[in-house]
Amino acid sequence: MTEWIISILLLIGGSFVLVGSIGLVKMPDFFMRLHGPTKATTLGMAALLTAAMIFFSTTQSGFSVKEILISLFLLLTAPISAYMMIKSAIHHKLDSIDRTQGKDNIEDEL
């Protein structure tokens, strides 16, 4: 039973990580590429680490919850690194594709 849960969580996590990387390759401009890795990869890692937590709790002696710490850390830091990257992209005046709406909302004051 636990083996099934671990397998399903692992497959969900792996496919979310893969979807994040597909988004990284497939999207046409930087601002759209940013969406895949920040969201899909973070959730995929959370699923993988939950699977690892259940695995180590059942196979080894004693309860193991320390894997939560990594997923907590990734959840906290993913928005911050995304913010830093989009800020540097705006500062470098990267082109967004033509059909982007509201481009005049960007004001670079640095």
Binding site: F30, L34, T41, L48, L74
Partner: peptide, 22 residues
């Protein structure tokens, strides 16, 4: 561009965490 490469590196370190856990 350079931010693209930073984004790729950022995703790579997260994926290597997954690899090590696996």
């Amino acid at each position: 561009s350079v931010p693209d490469r930073i984004l790729a590196l950022d995703t790579m370190y997260i994926n290597s965490i997954a690899l090590i856990i696996l």
